[in-house]
Simulated scan of single mutants.
Amino acid sequence: MDTTPAEPLSRAAGLSWLVSRIRPRTGRTLVAIDGVDGAGKSTFAGDLTTELTDSGLTVIRISLDDFLNPVSVRHAQGRTSPEGFVADSYDYPRFVEDVLEPLGSEGCGRYRAKSYDFATETPLNPPWQVAPDTAVVVVDGMFLHCERFYDERGRKLWDFSVWLDVPCAESVRRLAERDGSPSDPDDPRIRRYVEGQRRYIERRNPARRADLVIDNG
C-alpha cells in the first residue's frame, strides 16, 4: 500500500486519494468508513460509492447499524452505560460471519447485508446474495477500528480504512439538528453515547490507525 497522507485531507482530496488507490486493485476490496455519530459516515460512503461506480466498479454498500444487537444485549450493562454502548451495540460475530469473511479477498462471496432492523427491533435473516469476484465493499459505522477488526497478528481486516475527524461539539450539534437530541455534549441524557465514543477514541486512536483521515468538521 502507498504511504498514507501525513496530514488530514479535505473531503474532496480524500475521495480522490481513495478512488485512485482502489481503482487499480483486482479481486474484492474492503473499505471501512469510521467516525463518531454525526460525523457524516453514510454521506461520505455514498459519495465514495458514486465515484467508484462512475469509474465502472461494482460497489456493495453495508452499514454496521444493520448489525445491531437486540436491545436486551445493547443495554445489558445499563441503559446509560458508556462502556455498554461501545462493547454491546453491535453483533460483531454475525457481521464477521455474514460480511467480512465471505466478502474478503479469499471469501466465497455469499453474504447477507443485514441482520437487524432497528426501527422495529426485529432480527432479520434476508436471502443470501452473491458478490462478484471483483467488487468494492464499502462499510460505514462506528468503532470500525476496534480490536475485533484486527487479526491475531494485529493486522487490519480492512484493505483501506478512513477516519472522519469531526469535533465532538460539532457532531452533537449535527445530531441535535437531525434527531432533536440535546445539543450540549455534557447533557446527561446523551452521556452514554458521547462518553462511549470518547473512550473509543482514547483507547483505539482511530486517527492513527486509519489509512486516511478526512477533516469533515
Rank of each mutant, 00 (worst) to 15 (best):
K41V: 04
G104Q: 02
T26Q: 13
R61L: 07
N69I: 01
T26V: 09
C108E: 09
W158M: 09
E101H: 07
D65C: 12
P102L: 05
D117G: 03
P70F: 03
S105L: 03
L48K: 01
S42A: 14
A135M: 08
L30I: 04
H145V: 04
A119P: 00
L157M: 13
D151K: 12
G27Y: 00
P127Q: 06
G56E: 05
V138D: 04
R74N: 08
E152D: 14
E152V: 12
S105P: 05
P102F: 03
L100T: 01
P127F: 02
G56Q: 08
W158A: 09
V96R: 13
Q129E: 15
G109P: 02
A32R: 08
Y90L: 15
P126Q: 08
S81N: 10
A135C: 11
L68H: 15
G27Q: 03
R23G: 06
R25Q: 15
R94C: 12
Q77G: 04
F85L: 08
P132S: 13
P24D: 13
D54E: 15
Y150I: 02
G84D: 01
Y116L: 04
G84R: 04
L64W: 02
R148P: 01
D117E: 14
G141P: 00
S81G: 10
R94E: 11
T120S: 14
P102M: 06
S161V: 03
A39R: 05
K114R: 15
V86D: 05
P123C: 10
G78T: 03
R79M: 09
W128I: 14
L157C: 06
K156M: 08
G109Q: 03
W128S: 14
S161E: 12
F95N: 10
G84V: 00
A131V: 06
T120G: 02
K41R: 13
T53Q: 13
S89A: 15
T120L: 06
K41L: 10
T50M: 07
H145T: 07
Y116S: 05
V138I: 11
F143M: 08
Y150H: 13
E152A: 15
E51F: 02
S81H: 01
R25K: 12
S55N: 09
N69H: 08
Y90T: 06
R155D: 14
L164S: 09
T58F: 06
P127R: 05
G46M: 12
S55V: 04
W128P: 02
V136N: 03
F143L: 10
P70S: 09
L124N: 06
T50F: 07
G27V: 02
G38S: 03
P126K: 04
V130S: 13
T26A: 12
W158E: 07
G46S: 12
D88H: 14
C108P: 00
W163E: 09
Y90V: 11
S161C: 11
V162Y: 03
V86T: 05
F67A: 10
H75Q: 10
E101V: 13
